[in-house]
Design a protein around this nucleic acid. Structure first.
Lengths: 237, 237
DNA sequence: TGCCCCCTCGCTATTTCTGGGGAGTTGAAA
DNA sequence: TTTCAACTCCCCAGAAATAGCGAGGGGGCA
């Protein structure tokens, strides 16, 4: 007996831990009659979390090999704000082909459909369903369930943000206006001297802002600080 | 006589220049019976373009004063992927209040509703309608026209990407895998020595990658290169 | 009033990055 | 087959960033 999507969404609503989301993923797999349902996200600090029906071996291999940097699904969806059929992605390239081969060996379906979602602090998540149907069947499936899948993806996203591990960590502090100015200048490629001139302050003062921002962001150096500020949307470039 | 939304969308479809989009904005203003309709976007190279019904004086002042960095609508929507009512935004802060005061003086409505959209290379755009209705009337309006506005915003976005000025500029080159690795390490805060060690190459080689990536990205220095790579979604951090 | 954050400026020594130069191998595409 | 892009390694000198330290005025909040 398959649960309805609404029932599963209710179940998701009640979730208070990753394990509950795991159960939701399994229920969704049964409901949609696909090989796998996976929800995978990258926190604002770059850590990966996920829940889904992939085998533990594949998950471990994925993390160990840092396939995040190879997986065309990740990079391909990163700029997309719409669902993506894996067939639309670029699977050329040596590392990518090897990755694809391994994925299939580990039981990931040949077909896939991924929906990217975001959080307010640069979190990036993917809700994915995979299967082994034929191209035509898969297209039909994706077309028919597009809306439901989008709704589910966004619901998963809400819950993931709510449960996000590492939330207890250093709070995401806002930067002061001058710090934003300083970091923005640097992100635009200006040297410290140029930035100081642009902001009409001494270079020493500028440095104080950069250092201050760097500490607030928990960044190791200026480049890191700029990257974090951008990722968290603290500056507009 | 007001044109229907569908008619206006057709008109938009035919647009071949900014002026046509301007006419579309005016038609939308009349259709929705609001004070202003504005579409404003920031290209991947950081330049601003727009079309809409704001007075030329306000637009010039906005650009001259770089209000992009002050405007809470810009920063508030930057992390949002959903429409935002201006009342939800944070209007505290000295510069922000001053900005708000000026905006009202220049005829921008007290109420506003903005829909953020994105392009594939970091373009960030806002479709905004403003008016002077009461809170209740505005809420009702926004609720009633939400779907239409979202559709229009996305259509404007498509057209804006198509017409984007500066498209003739240096093409957005993809980075080689090693360049991606190198820039990613830097974005994660590693020094060149650390990054070289992590990638198991000499620091000299790493430098070649960074320089190469920097040239491809048209960046002035390493920090700039990382910022551009992030903005264009070439690296996943 | 006291506290804390923001803004501004200064000094010094050390480490790191920048911007040129050249050179050999591999592999894929034309 | 040639050609080109990617990958790897090396040298050097000058420019820039870094990590500490310290100090004082202003404004907001309790």
């Amino acid at each position: 007996m398959k649960a309805s999507v609404d029932t599963i969404l209710e179940q998701l609503e009640q979730a208070t831990a990753l394990e509950d989301m795991q159960a939701v993923a399994e229920a969704l797999r049964d409901r949609f009659n696909v090989s796998h349902v996976v929800y995978h996200w990258v926190s604002s600090s770059g850590e990966q979390y996920g829940c889904g029906t992939y085998s533990i071996e594949w998950v471990e291999r994925y993390l160990e090999k840092e396939y995040l940097r190879v997986d065309p699904v990740i990079t391909g969806c990163y700029n997309s704000f719409h669902p993506v059929d894996w067939k639309q992605l670029d699977w050329s390239g040596k590392a990518t082909r090897q990755f694809q081969k391994e994925a299939i060996e580990y039981g990931v379906g040949r077909q896939g459909y991924s929906i990217p979602t975001r959080g307010p602090n640069g979190q990036y998540a993917l809700f994915t369903v995979t299967d082994d149907r034929s191209d035509e069947e898969w297209e039909e499936f994706a077309e028919a369930n597009r809306r439901s899948l989008i709704i589910v993806a966004h619901a998963m996203n809400e819950k993931a943000l709510e449960l996000e591990p590492g939330r207890e960590g250093p709070p995401i502090t806002a930067l002061s206006p001058r710090e934003v100015d300083a970091i923005t200048c640097l992100a635009l490629g200006q040297s410290r001297a140029q930035a100081a001139q642009k902001l009409s302050i001494s270079e020493h003062t500028l440095r104080v802002y950069i250092e201050s921002a760097r500490h607030k962001l928990g960044a190791l150096n200026t480049t890191h600080a700029v990257a974090r500020a951008m990722q968290r949307g603290l500056i507009v470039v």
